[in-house]
Design a protein around this nucleic acid. Sequence first.
DNA 1: CCTGAAAGTCAGGTTTGCTTGACTTCTGTC
DNA 2: GACAGAAGTCAAGCAAACCTGACTTTCAGG
Lengths: 71, 71
Amino acid sequence: MKSRLKLLRAEHGLTQADLGERVGVSRQAINAIETGKFEPSLGLAWRLARHFGHPIEQIFDFSDELEGEQP
Amino acid sequence: MKSRLKLLRAEHGLTQADLGERVGVSRQAINAIETGKFEPSLGLAWRLARHFGHPIEQIFDFSDELEGEQP
DNA sequence: CCTGAAAGTCAGGTTTGCTTGACTTCTGTC
DNA sequence: GACAGAAGTCAAGCAAACCTGACTTTCAGG
């Protein structure tokens, strides 16, 4: 999973602590997501997407993790 | 959080076990999500959304959980 | 060079997403 | 009414998503 979170946050001139505060998580959580330590929950992803005014899929991209999903 | 998962699954004529198999989780997981026991991870939400061809926000709706997010 | 703010990292702990296995309840069909 | 398949539920366990608190690294300005 790759995210555009770091980019978006920079564009909005926010610090990790700032963003964390606004979406209700710790600054370490934001940092961990940006550095790929883990993925956000659906609720957090939703709040982040809403905060930046973008759809979730446009911020968090899983399209490189296509396994056995027979179409 | 309310989801349209049960509805979409019914529209596609799938059983909980079927759907679970296609997105890579157990049938109990699908059931728990449909009955509101817990929320899916972002990865699972992404796979479900992709499987039904809808954006995540259109399937899982958090808009009733708006707390202190100063716009 | 110093300082301070921001970012990054680690340990330890709690909560939640998800598993398997087993059991019960609901719904239809014969 | 019996049977089967689907849905629902519970317990026990593991892994991932958070938390707090503390520490180190990076880097721009004075």
